[in-house]
């Protein structure tokens, strides 16, 4: 399941609901992203997450489907917030449940790496010098590329 929302979420409740009633789950891996108060050397007062309604959901659904095609998952969940967030606030949650830990860990890492480079979200940081759009990082591209092939067909 994927969700894009302004409101905060409760990781404990989300994880409990994700695996409720499924006794095949032996491992649950989760990543929660938070707003930092530093970007490089600059203080961040807050950030605003913008997205492309429609395409964002579509890309998240596709990335989740790709994870479920690659790993034997019992359940998966992606929640991404939008709007203005302050340091310490939760931005994103990715959770994957599987019979065993390896699939859960790997799928979770894959989901957040692909989300960061493919899902249309943009961060506007408020710093001492004013507001600044965050630039994409090459290290994120490299992290996403670890999970190649990019297109399932490309492996043929």
């Amino acid at each position: 399941m994927i969700r894009v929302q302004r409101e905060d979420f409760d990781p404990g409740q989300e994880l409990a609901a994700l695996t409720a009633g499924n006794r095949k789950v032996g491992g649950l891996a989760v990543f929660v992203g938070l707003v930092r108060d530093l970007a490089g050397d600059e203080t961040v007062g807050a950030m605003t997450l913008e997205h492309y309604p429609g395409m964002t959901e579509k890309m998240l659904e596709r990335i989740e489907a790709e994870a479920r095609a690659r790993w034997p998952l019992e359940a998966s969940l992606v929640i991404h917030r939008t709007g203005r967030l302050e340091p310490g606030e939760r931005i994103v949650l990715v959770a994957c449940a599987s019979a065993h830990r390896q699939a859960a860990f790997e799928a979770c890492g894959f989901l957040i790496d692909w989300l960061k480079t493919k899902a249309p979200f943009w961060k506007l940081e408020e710093g001492p010098a004013g507001a600044k759009w965050v630039e994409a990082r090459e290290s994120d591209d490299a992290a996403a590329a670890r999970w190649a092939p990019e297109e399932p067909d490309a492996a043929e």
């Binding site: 992203g33 997450l49 395409m55 994103v92 989300l115 960061k116 249309p120 994409a136």
Partner: peptide
Amino acid sequence: NQEYADPDQPVGPDDEVALFPPVTGG
């Protein structure tokens, strides 16, 4: 139409075309 496109992709009058920077979510 909400799918990433290359420069050589055709566009027409009924299309929705979005322009944006490299994404920075997560």
